Structure formats: C-alpha cells, structure tokens
Amino acid sequence: MVEIKTPDQIAKMREAGLVVAEAHRACREAVAPGVTTKELDEIAARVIREHGAKSNFLGYGGFPATICASVNDVVVHGIPDGLTLREGDVISIDCGAIVDGWHADAAITVPVGAVPPEITELSRVTEESMWAGIAAVRRGNRLVDISRAIENYIRRQPRPTAGPAGKYGIIEDYGGHGIGSAMHMDPHLLNYVDRRRGRGPRLVPGFCIAIEPMVGLGTPRTHVLDDEWTVKTNDGTWACHWEHSVALTEQGPLVLTAFDGGRAKLAELGIEAAPDPVA
C-alpha cells in the first residue's frame, strides 16, 4: 500500500525536511581533516534537538546514531565512531528527522579537502542522477519512470577511470523508498530499471518518495560488515550517495529536504517547483 498524504501532512514533512537541511548544513561546514564521524553525529543530534524535532535514525532497528557516516568504500549505513577524516576522503552523511510524527530523510556526499578528480565527478554524477529522478516526479508517471531517469543519466556519462566495462556501478541492493508516517514505506525505488518488477504505482498528488542513488567507481555488488549495518563495495572502490525526500503536490514536485524546495535546480531542468507550504 502506498500512503497518499494530505497537504497538511506534506507541510509537516516539509518542516521535518528543513530540519534535515539544517543538520546537513552544519555537518557540511564541520567536515575537515581531523574531525571524527562521531563529532559530526553530535552536531546533527544537536541541530535536530534544537529545532524541536526527533531523529528517525537513532534506535531504528537498533541503529546507534543520529547519522549514517559512510566514508570512501562504505556505501551506506556507516556507524559514526572515532574514525578521523583525512585529506582526500569522501563522506556520505545520511540524516533524518521527525516532526509531529511525519518524517524526512536526505543524504549528501562531502569531500574532505581536495579529493581525486574522479571522485569529484562521481559525486557530481550521483547528485545529478538524483535530480533527474526528481524531475520525473510528475503526475501520471509511474515509479519506474523515476528509476529510468536515474539510470539513463548515469549511463550517458563518459567512461569513468575505473569500473567494469567502463561503466559506473549502480548499487543494486539498496534504493529509495516511500516516506511519510514512517521513514521507510512502500514503494521500494530501484535506481535502475528491472523489467521483472513491472512499472510500479502511478504518481498522483500526495505521493512522497525518498530518491537516493548510490553509485560507485567499480562493482555494483556490496556486502555488510559484522556490525550488521556498514555496507561496503565488494571490490573496495569508492562510492557516493545523494538523497532528497520529494512530495508530488497538485502544483508539482516539492523537494522537502532542500532549503528552497528544489526551486532553483528544478528551474534549470525546466520544471516549476510547487509553492512552499511553510514559507
């Protein structure tokens, strides 16, 4: 079952999304060589608390932190600890918040100082593929149209410096998800097209989805470490992860976890973002 939200419920999700954006801004500003992932977790926790929201990561299935901090070959779900960031690392910071029972969830990838050019490009490709997926959140489209937009963007990019058959690795075991009264809900969103799964539900006003491509320089295959959370690439190549929570309204898409609701980026793509309900 896909949960369809009312405008008032979307407004609450927008409030939660703005808290997530604030937490990401604070963490991004703090990322530097010598900073630990635990310190970033404490920063996000403080921001969420100061805005009167709750973390939807802390305690989720036993997860012990407010953010997922995934460094280099860790794709997702890295547990913040005493790991010290070094010049040239890249870190994905995944974070979520709850306001009055309504959820938002987003992820950013941040370079630590100067990073190799191929990693800068990998992050750009991953982020732009997310926006291609967001642009497909239109009335009358189906879920698979989001998957297709993400995959097509990635596949059109020039051959990377690494990777099997000269292709970026679209991580296969993880993807986006419905979001609303819970952090993870139906439907599951693949970042590529699997014709065996059909076209998925039709997109209608009130449909909300977290779009989160995860892309690596090498294999799309991953494994989970003994902590039962940390996901790494099988071949040790680095990966990037970007995510926004998006609502489809009567007036078009609203990026719940972007400060401007996605207005500037969607305008570049020829799409008008929905009015912000909490502006």
Score class of each variant (00 low, 15 high):
K5L: 15
T6G: 08
E15N: 02
A16R: 01
V19E: 07
V20C: 13
V20K: 04
A21R: 13
A23R: 06
A26Q: 12
V31D: 04
V31R: 07
G34T: 04
V35M: 14
T37I: 09
E42F: 01
E42S: 12
E42W: 00
A44K: 03
A45H: 10
A45R: 14
R46P: 00
R46F: 04
V47D: 10
H51K: 14
H51W: 12
G52K: 03
G59D: 03
Y60V: 04
F63T: 07
P64W: 11
A65L: 03
A69W: 07
V71Q: 06
V71H: 10
N72F: 01
D73C: 02
V76G: 01
V76C: 14
H77N: 10
P80M: 09
D81W: 05
T84F: 02
T84H: 04
L85V: 03
L85C: 07
L85P: 13
L85N: 09
R86M: 09
R86P: 02
R86I: 00
G88L: 03
D89G: 11
V90D: 08
V90M: 14
S92A: 15
S92C: 12
I93V: 14
A97Q: 07
G101D: 07
H103N: 14
D105W: 14
V110M: 06
P111I: 03
P111M: 05
V112C: 13
A114C: 01
P117D: 12
T120Y: 00
T120K: 12
E121G: 06
L122P: 02
L122S: 02
L122T: 01
R124I: 00
V125A: 06
T126P: 10
E128D: 15
S129A: 15
A136F: 04
A136H: 06
V137F: 09
R139K: 15
R142M: 00
L143P: 01
S147P: 01
E151F: 09
Y153Q: 02
R155K: 12
R156S: 15
Q157E: 07
P158K: 11
R159V: 13
R159N: 00
P160L: 04
A165V: 02
K167I: 01
Y168K: 08
I170M: 10
I171M: 13
D173P: 00
Y174D: 04
G175V: 02
G176L: 04
G176H: 03
G176C: 08
G178N: 01
I179H: 07
G180S: 02
S181Q: 10
A182Y: 05
M183L: 14
D186I: 01
P187R: 00
H188Q: 06
Y192I: 05
V193D: 12
R196A: 13
R197T: 00
V204G: 07
V204M: 10
C208L: 09
M214V: 06
R221F: 11
V224P: 13
V224Q: 15
D227N: 15
E228Y: 13
V231R: 12
T233W: 06
T233C: 05
N234K: 13
N234W: 05
T237I: 00
C240M: 12
H241W: 14
S245Q: 05
S245G: 12
L248G: 10
T249N: 07
T249K: 07
G252S: 10
G252A: 10
P253T: 06
V255N: 05
V255K: 06
L256W: 02
L256N: 00
L256V: 02
F259R: 15
F259D: 11
G261I: 12
G262F: 04
A264W: 11
K265Y: 10
K265I: 13
L266G: 08
A274Q: 04
A274Y: 05
P275F: 07
